[in-house]
Each structure stands twice: as structure tokens, then as C-alpha cells.
Design a protein around this nucleic acid. Structure first.
Length: 557
DNA sequence: CGGACAAGCTGA
DNA sequence: CAGCTTGTCCGG
């Protein structure tokens, strides 16, 4: 068994009641402590020199043998601890027994056949309905269907139930999924859901970054689900309007709709070249003003991430500056202000009045809302990540998070798309196209609403791809660039940080299978030709004591 | 991780 | 040398 204790990544042998299955969750006494544990193997040959203890209690059911094996693979692939993955694969509440499997009678599904072959990317335009693909998967038997959010998974489950398809919506219906006979539907963590009779895997909006876990190990749900499909020898279909380069490379087959179909599902893009606009109009082009006044619901997107954030005293309004060089300072921790220019740290206190309360000035954003309101002739609501309820205003302004709060709008306007296009992340292009895909879906594709993009780079390949409703145009350019720079998917990367990092990378740099770059800001980048080489090198390098974070497939570095 | 135990430091 | 801290090891 594997104990559920952080810091112990090791197996121990215990005596368990007869018929205890692999995957059982048990309580054991380990070194005088009562801890939970997963039974990952039975009928083992224990080492001769240890006296075995009895497990204290069999508490319930956990991940079955096939899922445990995938968890072991993922621990290698993402250089993480098995326990953290087994936790993701375990039910949220104790499961003592399974309900009877769903009735075997299957609906007469009238659905198109699932693409033949094991590894398929199905490029479907943003506004296209994915439901027929899900139905096709349901017709194969116990399919596993992943959606990017819990809400979308819930809606999909409801739609399937209405069509009389037996559905297990995980994590809620974990036991029903484990019993078999149902289509298993869920969000990211559903990649680990039980699916004893797995017949197919479908990942919806597979390009979405929410499928990657942020905490280490940084496993990715589409890759975990694809690995399960591979092991079960069943088809895996990634459905997305804009496949990532990794996904195109993974696929044995990329199914592309007809030009007409794909064009119909992408919004007609209106690109405003900000270089040709009157500079006095700032973020508000004539075209934007026309759309604002044209009626219908308008979502204005302004990404303020990465912008200069200024701190000011909440009492006297004085700006917080560096004592040494007078630059603005940022708040890195609760009790500390940091100067990026000269590196000086100082406590959080106003230099003018001594107050310890500072507030964040989000430069210009309130003014953007005010100016939009003036132009629209009505109040404009600002939506931030912590806006609880979506305001009823016709015109909304917010970050890209706003795109995920809305179901349908008439106009999406990206006020400054260069923030997205030129972000210093190697996936910026793909991410920017994904935003345009999302916007296209919200306005309902070509001929419905409008997507407006204000930019100083109107010829950028992301805009070219969206204008032509052809994500392949971005992939071609992006693929060449990544290959030239040695970036994924033409290499495998890991970011290593933490107090123990220097010792760890020192040992790693002796390994000829990988290349160690850095440090940059206390973090090293480890590069290998492929993931097998990277994972092997990371797993054969001894981990020193102390905090060590190994982030495989870093989204930014 | 957290308990056990050993080795090292301090003060009387 | 007791009393305490710090480090290392190990769990079935």
C-alpha cells in the first residue's frame, strides 16, 4: 500500500482481510501513526526481515488497478508524487459499495460514427455544436467525456440524461461511474474517474489550459485521458476549434471540417489598425463607438495583466515609491514592498503620512469604463474576477475572465489585443487564438454578432488565422518558430525552483540526456528532446532535502 | 510527514 | 553532564 502522507513516496506491505481489492482505501498504523493508504497491489512477496502488521480498517473503495497504473505513469511523466495523483483519483466521500450497473439496454442512438482510429483531433469551429460527437461516443458504450468546466460538464450530463443515456457526473456520481454501464462526464479531474468498461474518450475544447493542473505534479487531463484510452485500446477524440501543436503532433489523424463549415462557425472578425487611428481616440476607435451605439449586449475585453500596477496610500493618496531610486514599488508579499528597478525591499508604510494601508491603483481602467459609458450614453459595468453576480448592464468591460462569465453576446471587442498577441509566453499565439475562438462562440459564429479587435499588429498570424477561420495558418507559422527555438512540442521542458533547486540542477547537469539553462530569477529550465528523456532524467536524479518544485510543461517561464 | 535517536552546543 | 537544539534516518 501507499500511505497518504506528504513526504513519503514509498510502498509498504501489510496484512489485509481476504478479498481486499486493489484500489481499496485503508487505515493503517505506520511508525506509530494512524494514516490512510491506498492498496495498490495484493499477494505480494514481502521482504523476509520485516514483521507485517494488519491493516486497521478497510474504509472504502478507491481507484481501480488500471487508474493506479496510469497514476504511476503520470508520476513519472510529470515528475511528481504518486500520492498526489492517487488523491485526484479517489472519491471525495467514502464509497462503501457500488450501485447496480446501469441497465444494459442502450438507446437507439442516431449519431454519426466516432472517427475511426485511436488518436484523433477533431477540429470543430467555435460555434459548432459538439453534442453529436458526444452522442456518437455514448453510442460506443461507457465513454469518458471531459469538459473544460464543471458547469459545462453538468449541462452536458443533463442533455444526455434527457436523451435517456445513463450518465455518471463525477465527482458526484463516482460510485455509479465505478459500477459501469454509464457514460462518465466531468471536468479536469474526471480524467481520473473510474470507467471499468471504457469504450472511448472525448475531450471537449481540448486546447483549453484549464486541463492542466496548476499545482505540481502539473498533469494535463487530456494527456491523462489519452493515455487511458491508449491502454484500453479505445478511440480518443480531442474536439477543439484550435488544436495546440502538441495535440496535432499527438494525433494520428486530424479531421478538418469543410471550408464552408469552418467559416460558418468563426465570427467575421473586424480588425482595427490602431496605428491608423487618431491617437487622440486612444482605445476607442470609430468602429468601436458605432458598435457600442448599435444596441445589443457588448463585452469589452481589456487585459490589464502585466500592466504597471501602482500602489497609493489609502489615507493620503501619496504614491508608494522606492526610497533609493524613486521608482514605483510593487507589493510582493503582505508585509513587503519591492522595487523592480533596484531590488530594494521595504515595509508597507506610506512615506508621507506613515499609514500602513495602501491601495492598488488599476491605472486607467475605471477611466476606460467611464469613457465607454460616455460613448455608449449609458452606464457601463466593470467586471473583475471577484464580481459576484454579472451586472445587467448592456455594456460590460473586464478582463478575459469576462468571456467565461457570459453565454452569449452580440459584440465582443478586444480593446487592446496586442497585450494578448505579444505576451511574453511561448504559447501566447495559441492562447490569443483561443480567445478569438471563445469570442466567436459567444457571438454565434459568422453572420450573427461581431468580434472587434483593436491592434497595432493587424498582419499577425493569429489574426490571419481567425480572419480566414483556419487555425492551420497559425499552426504553420508557430510550428516553424517553435522548432527553430527548441520549444515544445519539439522539446520537453521542466522548470525547477525552490531552495533545493541549486543542488538538484547541479546533479541534473551531469546528465547528458538533458540541457540545463539558467538560473533566471532563481529558476532553472531543463530541456530534453522528448518527454521520455526528460522524465527519465528527472526520475533518476536524487532529490535533495528541502523544498523543490519541478514543473513539467511550464506554461510560462 | 513526524517520531526517534544521535551528535553537537551551552552553561553551571 | 543535564538540557536543549539541530540533523539524519526511517516507517512494513
Amino acid at each position: 500500500m501507499v500511505p497518504d502522507v506528504a513526504g513519503i513516496d514509498k510502498r509498504f506491505d501489510y496484512l489485509a482481510p481476504p478479498d481486499t481489492p486493489v484500489g481499496a482505501l485503508v487505515r493503517v498504523t505506520l511508525n506509530g501513526r494512524r494514516v490512510g493508504a491506498w492498496v495498490v497491489d495484493v499477494d505480494v512477496d514481502p521482504p523476509a526481515d520485516v514483521a507485517l502488521r494488519q491493516v486497521n480498517k478497510v474504509s472504502g473503495l478507491g481507484p481501480a488497478a488500471d487508474v493506479i497504473e496510469v497514476a504511476e505513469w503520470a508520476a513519472w511523466r510529470w515528475a511528481g508524487r504518486l500520492t498526489s495523483l492517487l488523491r485526484s483519483a479517489s472519491p471525495a466521500v467514502v464509497v462503501r459499495g457500488l450501485p447496480p450497473p446501469a441497465a444494459a439496454e442502450r438507446l437507439p442512438v442516431t449519431a454519426p460514427a466516432l472517427p475511426a482510429g485511436g488518436r484523433t483531433v477533431l477540429r470543430l469551429a467555435p460555434a459548432a455544436d459538439v453534442y453529436p460527437v458526444v452522442l456518437a461516443a455514448a453510442a460506443t458504450g461507457d465513454a469518458l467525456v471531459l469538459a473544460p468546466s464543471v458547469d459545462q460538464a453538468g449541462l452536458l450530463a443533463m442533455r444526455l440524461r434527457r436523451a435517456r443515456v445513463p450518465v455518471a457526473l463525477v465527482p458526484r456520481d463516482w460510485a455509479r461511474a465505478a459500477a459501469g454501464g454509464s457514460v462518465v462526464v466531468g471536468a479536469r479531474a474526471a480524467a481520473w474517474a473510474p470507467a471499468p468498461g471504457l469504450s472511448a474518450v472525448i475531450v471537449l475544447d481540448a486546447h483549453d489550459e484549464v486541463y492542466q493542473e496548476e499545482r505540481t505534479p502539473t498533469w494535463n487531463a487530456w494527456q491523462v485521458a489519452a493515455e487511458r484510452a491508449r491502454r484500453a485500446a479505445v478511440p480518443c477524440v480531442l474536439v477543439t476549434p484550435c488544436p495546440t501543436l502538441e495535440q496535432e503532433r499527438w494525433a494520428a489523424d486530424v479531421v478538418v471540417p469543410s471550408r464552408a463549415q469552418e467559416r460558418a462557425g468563426w465570427a467575421a472578425l473586424e480588425v482595427v489598425d490602431r496605428r491608423k487611428e487618431d491617437p487622440r481616440s486612444g482605445l476607442f476607435s470609430d468602429r468601436l463607438v458605432t458598435l457600442l451605439r448599435g444596441g445589443g449586449r457588448v463585452a469589452c475585453i481589456l487585459n490589464r495583466k502585466g500592466r504597471a500596477k501602482l500602489l497609493a496610500c489609502a489615507a493620503c493618496g501619496e504614491l508608494a515609491r522606492c526610497e533609493r531610486c524613486d521608482a514605483s514599488v510593487e507589493s510582493v508579499e503582505a508585509a513587503r514592498l519591492h522595487c523592480r528597478r533596484c531590488g530594494l525591499d521595504r515595509p508597507v508604510v506610506c512615506q508621507a503620512c506613515g499609514s500602513q494601508r495602501l491601495k492598488l491603483l488599476r491605472l486607467g481602467v475605471s477611466r476606460v469604463a467611464e469613457e465607454l459609458a460616455a460613448l455608449a450614453g449609458e452606464p457601463v459595468a466593470e467586471v473583475t474576477a471577484d464580481t459576484a453576480d454579472l451586472p445587467a448592464n448592456r455594456v460590460l468591460v473586464g478582463t478575459e475572465a469576462l468571456l467565461h462569465r457570459l453565454d452569449a453576446v452580440d459584440v465582443v471587442a478586444f480593446l487592446d489585443f496586442d497585450q494578448e498577441l505579444l505576451a511574453p509566453r511561448y504559447r501566447a499565439g495559441e492562447q490569443a487564438l483561443a480567445l478569438l475562438a471563445r469570442a466567436s462562440r459567444l457571438v454565434g459564429g459568422r453572420g450573427s454578432g461581431r468580434v472587434l479587435v483593436q491592434t497595432r499588429a493587424p498582419a499577425h498570424e493569429v489574426l490571419d488565422a481567425a480572419l480566414h477561420a483556419d487555425p492551420g495558418r497559425l499552426a504553420a507559422v508557430e510550428g516553424e518558430r517553435r522548432q527553430a527555438l527548441g520549444l515544445p512540442p519539439f522539446a520537453a521542458l521542466a522548470l525547477v525552483s525552490g531552495e533545493a533547486a541549486p543542488v538538484f540542477v547541479d546533479a541534473l547537469s551531469a546528465d547528458t540526456a538533458v540541457e540545463v539553462l539558467g538560473p533566471d530569477d532563481g529558476r532553472w529550465l531543463v530541456r530534453a528532446p522528448d518527454h521520455a528523456a526528460l522524465a527519465d532524467a528527472l526520475s533518476r536524479t536524487a532529490r535533495p532535502a528541502g523544498r523543490l518544485r519541478v514543473e513539467v510543461d511550464p506554461l510560462r517561464f
